[in-house]
Nucleic acid binder design. Structure first.
Lengths: 359, 359
DNA sequence: AGGAAGCTAGTAAGCGCTTTCATGCTTCGT
DNA sequence: ACGAAGCATGAAAGCGCTTACTAGCTTCCT
């Protein structure tokens, strides 16, 4: 007869605090105190416990710990895509600042899906993240905004914080923190730069019409035009995707249509890269025939030839600020600073070689 | 008299499962069953519970859940830096595959520190991640390898898995999974490509001497040389950092020394970018005077002018494989597939414009 | 009709920690 | 020398879930 008795597989499960306690000949309370160092323990006992921990290769269970009251010490960040340098730099800032405050960082990507974004907020909420940072411009959509607001309240109710990074506030009645950068101001400044170089016919290229980022950048652009008494010509505004292909395709189309312009303000550097490629292929020299500027100052701006004049956003700092706001700590862990609910980081224009004065 | 009585701040703490149960007039067990859907519950009851959940805005506590036995459903990935496209692509693969299997992804960065790497493994272990993926080449260091091995065992003991991604195995007695890509083969192939184009004097540039990646790439390079009966000239091997500055500085130095060479094999694309910049500044045309190849095929390879001939690594696939190995699932969630402990993804060379036949 | 099956739902025992409260000592002050 | 004070430790009550195990009802078969 074949022995079908269950042979218990001796899964060498990890030691618990009780195991450590037994081995050290103390109670688990003492072990906990040694680990957390928040209560006096005699030197001898401490050493015994520490030895037991080492011998057993004990690793605390973060869940039990989190459940028993100590915070989970993690922050979550929700971005579009890790590959995109724009998000990657922000993520780096978040990761570093989180680490600086002893937090682990959970990075989640939406890949552009709204539903996934909402689902991820819930997931991070379930994980009881100390803060959830939502990065990137938002689309105008009442229903969607309401969904986000609901989650912001839920998060708030469990002692966490939703931080909006690079997107407008949901309103004063929604408990969120906001870190913004100056889309409008940057667009104003760089448009003005183009104008003072003599350009009058400036094409605005790219950016989905309902994206908050586009709206703000376009507003700055218009304000600069108005400031210098130039007309706002709708025929020069060509909104669209924020990718390379759109820049390439659309500029080729504009060139084919013989649109009259001397400068190009791309909604971001990626679009600028595509546009410059299109210009190059069409034999239009930059900046001699057309000046080009972008926005964001991601690495590709320096790879392009000529190097791209663009608006720099302190992305990493943006991420760091978001964490500070979310964790309610100041620059140097000054927990006593008055609670700040919003921050704005400045932008600056960086002049490189893609703009020439109009002859 | 000022009332100094403690006014209890009514922190609107989140609803628990018990709250939901009370509201729905059932026991918490039933609520759990509705949520998990792993046990029959009558339609009426289910609806009542679901309504209570919605009304209360209940969000499960992932820690309690993890503690009570269900797995935490997260995977951790440890990389050098999110900004580096090499790591970012792998991270993307990991994130996507993890999501596909219903896991949340925790991304941690070491920024090059060994201690931090070890600390992060421990942290992810504490979080009870289903798998911990360690990405990137390793430095030869016995003590360090022993430390990693110890953690691999600890992880294994608690039912998790350490996956080594792009680094050699720690030995058969250490319970890890390994996903590799063919550093040696790719280096062989691209060196041979250079040789068949007539090049005889090939400089090998960059890569820390004790990094496993460098060792393998250099080995492939040497094998190709030997295969074609060419001498291995130590004067042509210039190991060093894997960054742009090293490529730039060293190539300028070699040029100043009037080193005799016609081709350049850079240890990765970043070094190639620096070297090409140095070559450009020195007025040495690529590929006419010097052919250049890189390794990795990160986006910058396509930005460079001329575009860089390089070795492509399916980075995203590498990340996906790592997750599958770590989670012990097959391509299509086929949990019945025999346990695989190691995988190797192939490399291929992508020919662009930075190599010319030697005239 | 009577009991075996088959359902649904509740009870309660943990999971591995933190923390409050209680306890037995040692150490002082007077 | 005796009670007060101070320390170091232990006992035990949760934290919010999951999941045996148990129990009450229907069905259904013989």
């Amino acid at each position: 007869m074949i022995d079908s008795e269950e042979v218990p597989v001796t899964e060498p499960s990890l030691a618990t605090m009780a195991d450590v306690a037994k081995r050290a000949g103390v109670s688990s309370a003492t072990v906990s105190r040694v680990i957390n160092g928040n209560y006096p323990v005699s030197a001898v006992t401490r050493q015994r416990v520490e030895r037991a921990i080492a011998e057993l290769g004990y690793v605390a269970n973060a869940h039990a710990r989190a459940l028993a009251g100590a915070t989970n010490r993690t922050v979550g960040i929700i971005i579009n895509d890790v590959i995109d340098p724009f998000y990657a730099y922000i993520a780096r800032g978040v990761e570093r600042e989180a680490t600086r405050h002893g937090r682990l960082c959970m990075v989640c990507c939406t890949h552009g899906s709204h539903e996934k974004e909402l689902a991820l907020i819930d997931l991070l909420h379930e994980q009881r993240a100390d803060a959830v940072i939502l990065v990137g411009g938002a689309y105008e959509d009442r229903a969607y905004a309401a969904q986000v607001a609901r989650r912001a309240r839920a998060l708030h109710a469990s002692g966490s914080t939703l931080v909006l990074c690079g997107r407008p506030s949901l309103g004063d009645d929604v408990p969120t923190r906001v870190v913004e950068y100056d889309n409008e101001g940057g667009a104003f400044a760089i448009t003005d730069h183009l104008i003072t170089q003599g350009h009058r016919k400036i094409v605005f290229l790219g950016g989905p019409p309902s994206l908050s980022t586009t709206v703000a950048r376009l507003a700055g652009h218009r304000r600069a035009l108005a400031f210098r008494g130039l007309p706002y010509d709708k025929g020069l505004i060509h909104l669209g995707q924020l990718n390379r292909r759109f820049g390439y395709d659309r500029i080729r189309a504009l060139l084919a249509d013989k649109l009259d312009f001397t400068a190009l303000f791309c909604a971001n550097d990626t679009v600028a890269a595509g546009a410059m490629q299109g210009l190059e292929l069409a034999g239009v020299p930059v900046p001699e025939a057309v000046s080009v500027v972008g926005y964001d100052d991601v690495p590709i701006a320096q790879e392009l030839r000529p190097q791209l004049t663009t608006v720099r956003i302190p992305l990493e700092e943006l991420g760091r600020q978001a964490v500070r706001l979310g964790l309610d700590v100041g620059d140097d862990d000054d927990y006593l600073s008055p609670v700040q609910t919003m921050a704005k980081v400045g932008t600056s224009i960086v002049v490189r070689a893609s703009v020439a004065p109009l002859s």
